[in-house]
Every structure is written in C-alpha cells, then in structure tokens.
C-alpha cells in the first residue's frame, strides 16, 4: 500500500538521495542498504532530499542515527534538505537540528560541505 523508493544521484563528490513515499519500520532496511552501499563505495558526502517523503517513523530516523558515526569518521556527513513542515516537525521534536545540518535547498547543503564550519558540528563529540 504505502511504498517507499530511493533515487540516487551522484554529483561530483556528493551523492544525493531522493526519498519518496513512506519511510517506516518496514521500509527502513531499504534506506539502510542504500547508505551501506554509499559507504562501501567511499562516497560519504551524502545529501538527503526529503521533498517527496510523505511520512517518516522513528525507525526511519534510526537509520540515519545508525550510519552517521561511520560516515563522519570517514570525513563525510549526511546533510538533509527540502523537508516539508510535517517531516521537519518530527526531526525537530527529537532534537535532530542540533545533531544534523538541516537546510532548505540542496545548494545550501553543498555549500555547507565546502565550508569547514558545516562539518565541524559533531553530534557525538565526546570531548
């Protein structure tokens, strides 16, 4: 009924994942697989586009949490953009904006990767 698809676009060193549909406990493994593949390829500058995502559950959020440490340890990051207010509300409630760069447009995400400032925000920094 509720389907979920991922469209991957590689632009230079960045990989953009366009998410479509419903991201919940059933469909989360697909996203996890896609992220694993990017990590295996060494493409760690990941931008996730939420423009076409209708719903995200806590299991969907968990996928990003599970991968972020690996990605950041490889000098990359997962940046998020184009969230609808509803999706942003879910991220916001959980305090994700303090942990991730969440921006309006894809270009902004690219710029954040360029500036050192963007990647300096480390959620898991234990120092």
């Amino acid at each position: 009924m509720d389907t979920f698809t991922i469209q991957r676009q590689d632009k230079d060193e960045f990989s953009v994942l366009n998410l479509f549909g419903f991201l919940d406990a059933h469909t989360a493994p697909e996203l996890e697989k896609q992220l694993d593949q990017l990590i295996n390829e060494g493409r760690c500058k990941i931008i996730v586009n939420f423009a076409n995502l209708n719903y995200i559950s806590s299991a969907g959020l968990g996928v990003f949490m599970g991968k972020i440490e690996t990605v950041r340890s490889m000098n990359g990051d997962i940046k998020m953009c184009k969230m609808t207010p509803k999706i942003f509300r879910v991220f916001d409630l959980l305090g994700f904006p303090t942990l991730y760069d969440i921006v309006q447009e894809e270009e902004e995400a690219v710029q954040l990767f360029a500036s050192k400032e963007g990647s300096s925000r480390r959620a898991y920094d234990r120092t």
Partner: peptide, 10 residues
C-alpha cells in the same frame, strides 16, 4: 534531544 542520540554536554 531524544535519549540515546547523542551523549555528554550536547
């Protein structure tokens, strides 16, 4: 922030 997402001072 949700429990288990980050640790320490943040």
């Amino acid at each position: 922030i949700g429990l288990g997402l980050t640790s320490g001072p943040l």
